[in-house]
């Protein structure tokens, strides 16, 4: 099972709030391989967001370890800012920078974090923007874009840092139904191009079609995991069956 194909190794990951009364994560063990498209499902409050946010240490775990490409990031000796560049993150509410144009949104991190040359960063940003069909909106501000457009920009913004992994936290949940497709399409292309992805989503169609692994979480624990076929067509635990009955 383990090989040098493993990108992220999570062991005994816990996140407690209020001195242990709230256990958002209660012992997560999982390996994420290079090229995985892992879909995380589960009821609201099950700890999916906390899990994602722990992976790039936006959330400081209470206990456990995360090993990324051989570096144990939970030990507090590494340069977190440097490490986070390797993990792109896409949020439910886009979180574009409203005071910057689309192009500035895409280039600010490459320029000030990676010290990239401005012209080079802009050229690359425009190429990526063209790939999602938004090159004509480069000089617009985020308020002038639709939700679907904003989310595509947010994905491109993360890609501009050349990440090894992309984390998606319910990227389509805040969108009007007619815009969900365009965002999923971009994610599908990304998966096809071989990007390692961890996606929290309620889009079961996407999970089946694009995911190669599905993880079902409840109460801060991984209850069941496996291929999309196993999870959706042959669920074992009652909790997963209950959950699927509600969402499918």
């Amino acid at each position: 099972m383990t090989s040098d194909n493993v990108l992220i190794k999570v062991r005994g990951l816990k996140k407690h709030y209020n001195g242990g009364t709230i256990r958002a994560l209660d012992g997560i063990d999982i390996d994420i391989n290079k090229g995985d498209v892992m879909v995380v499902i589960g009821p609201s409050g099950s700890g999916k967001s906390t899990f994602l946010r722990s992976l790039n240490l936006l959330e400081e775990p209470t206990d456990g370890s995360i090993d990324v490409e051989g570096q144990i990031i939970t030990e507090g000796k590494i340069d977190l800012d440097k490490f986070r560049q390797k993990m792109g993150m896409v949020f439910q509410h886009f979180n574009l920078f409203p005071h910057k144009t689309i192009l500035e949104n895409l280039t600010i991190a490459p320029i000030i974090v990676k010290k990239e040359d401005k012209a080079a960063a802009e050229k690359r940003a425009m190429e990526l923007l063209a790939r999602v069909g938004l090159e004509d909106r480069a000089s617009a501000y985020p308020v002038q874009l639709s939700g679907g457009q904003k989310q595509r920009v947010a994905i491109v913004r993360a890609l501009c840092m050349n990440p090894d992994v992309m984390l998606f936290d319910e990227p389509t949940s805040a969108l009007d139904p007619e815009m969900v497709g365009e965002v999923l399409e971009v994610m599908k292309d990304l998966a096809k191009a071989g990007m390692t992805m961890v996606c929290v989503t309620h889009e079961m169609g996407f999970a089946r079609e694009v995911g190669n692994r599905v993880v079902f979480m409840e109460d801060g624990k991984i209850v069941e995991q496996g291929s999309p076929d196993k999870i959706f067509n042959h669920p074992e635990s009652d909790r997963l069956k209950d959950f699927l009955a509600k969402v499918l």
Binding site: D81, R84, M89, N95
Partner: peptide, 27 residues
């Protein structure tokens, strides 16, 4: 300023200071 702004900036690798100066304070 929306907490999501800080999270987005930090997830892009910006330091606390860069986030404050480029993202939070202008807003």
């Amino acid at each position: 300023v929306d907490q999501g702004q800080t999270e987005a900036a930090r997830s892009l690798g910006m330091s606390k200071g860069q986030t404050m100066f480029h993202i939070i304070i202008p807003q």
